[in-house]
Design a protein around this nucleic acid. Sequence first.
RNA 1: GCGCCUGUAGCUCAACCGGAUAGAGCGUUGGACUUCGAAUCCAAAGGCUGGAGGUUCGAGUCCUCCCAGGCGCGCCA
Length: 555
Amino acid sequence: MIAKIIYQELEKLCEEAQKEGILPEQVKKRFQVEPPKNEAHGDYATNIALSLAGQAKKNPRELAAWFAERLAFRQDLFEKVEIAGPGFINFFIAKKYWQRVPLEIEKAGENYGALELGAQRQIQLEFVSANPTGPLHIGHGRGAAVGDTLARILAMAGFNVQKEYYINDVGRQMQILGRSVYLRAKELKGENIDFPEDHYRGEYIKDIARALLETKPDFFNLPEEEAINLAKEFAVKEILDGIKKDLEDFGVTYDVWFSEKILHEETYIEKALSFLREKGLLYEKDGAIWFKASEFGDEKDRVVIRASGEPTYFAADIAYHYHKFLVRGFDEVVDLWGADHHGYVPRMKAVIKAFGLKEEQFKVILIQMVNLLEGGRLKSMSTRAGEFVTLRELINEVGKDATRFIFLTRRADSPLDFDVELAKKQSRENPVYYVQYAHARLASLFRKAEEAGITPPKANEVDLSLLKYPEDFAILKLLDYFPDTIEAAATKFEPHLLTFYLLDLATALHDYYTKYRFLSEDLAYTRARLVLAKAVKQVLKTGLNLLGVSAPERM
RNA sequence: GCGCCUGUAGCUCAACCGGAUAGAGCGUUGGACUUCGAAUCCAAAGGCUGGAGGUUCGAGUCCUCCCAGGCGCGCCA
């Protein structure tokens, strides 16, 4: 949080500088406050003078001196403020400031890190949204982990978040699903079937057919078309139930399961298209209806109604986003898509602009591929029997915690190699245990303290100035940085930043643990360090919760 | 052919709207447990950030071109 405090102080000074004519009235206030790589450059540094010098036509070092002079008197915050290099301002934070951090954490408890950044704006996150034609696979798992964690982080940052799953339960693939089940059912009855190549061939289809015959013994008395329809309805429900169960066991729940059918049945497609038509953005050509996507940055216009009169998938998506923004009134909408859909982004953005919305209100996060490895070897992703590809198998074999954590150790838009053997290992190669172990170690510490008859003290009851060694400050600084991490992860939509933060905090804790004793003969130190330990434990727990990973008391 | 993403240590990845000497883990080598959990810690070695230009006080980051890999370019979903 100190970074934020400094930032705000500098902003105030900018206004002052403008009044005094040191900075021009029109000035772009673009500058950063960040921890420098080199410790000798202080705890935090800012490039404000370098960034503004050009605009102000001033010498950067002189400008830096102007800012530095006006901040140095804040002795509650700074031990030293110096100018360095071409015009950086380096801040050496007062030890007292760091030592107060445990007080803040104790006061806020599990809300430490909560922000008002979102000002309770309505934001919708749509993710996974796999077609209900089969079980979720490893790639969906990544989308689920990223989407769900992002939702938790955004909520922490003060947004009113709604999580949604879009069910594509309309269209040809649904018909094929129905037929697949229907044919498998016939097979079960003893008929010899030549199963079509383009139908769903997975084992789960047979299971569904079996269940169908059990619940509807008179199934084959229906006319074929009706039977296929029934098979379709039955299969969608079965598969969707399975998907819901898988996600639930993966720690992911949704606020809304949105059926594509609604868009057709409640005429949102017509509504959305007439909205565009009134703006003159639709036209007819070759018997089809086109949307003028090229007027909004897409490379070409796109068909929304086929010559056959059928709406395209794109039309349904237009209607879906019409519903999100103009019917339900979300301020911001975030879609998580597989990276193979990236070509679709410009046309969807075109729709948003055509609706008269701001481009920033709609964000697409692309989730890159997951390559499945076993013992370092790339496994094929075919759905052959025995292949280890479904999310369910991953949860069962590897576990929810390790799976989620691994998915969050990469930026979403970078491809991920998922090594099953490695994910199962309980060693440093598997980073989830590193963080969990830090938490369990602290839990154990408090059990030990209790055994020794020491009640963990309140932060205001101990002498926090005893937290004065480099390793104390390393931890305190990281704890202070937790809210900044939440902010960065939320504004950049990058949940992996939190994962890396937790690894850093765990490292600092493990390091401390081997160098110092928490429980010792010296009661004053013992009490101060228990306060520190409690603060670390709280932040680890909050952080792990945000990742949807458990924070075990023992392991 | 056009567009998007990626290219950083042997391997897997970081690097916060351009910041100071590019950081971790794994692996390798060598070390640390009679004391709070060794699922831990410490140290060493390891780099022309794919290549070439450019922009500026300053580039892994921005621009142009090239190379390599992935993906996308339907009246499919």
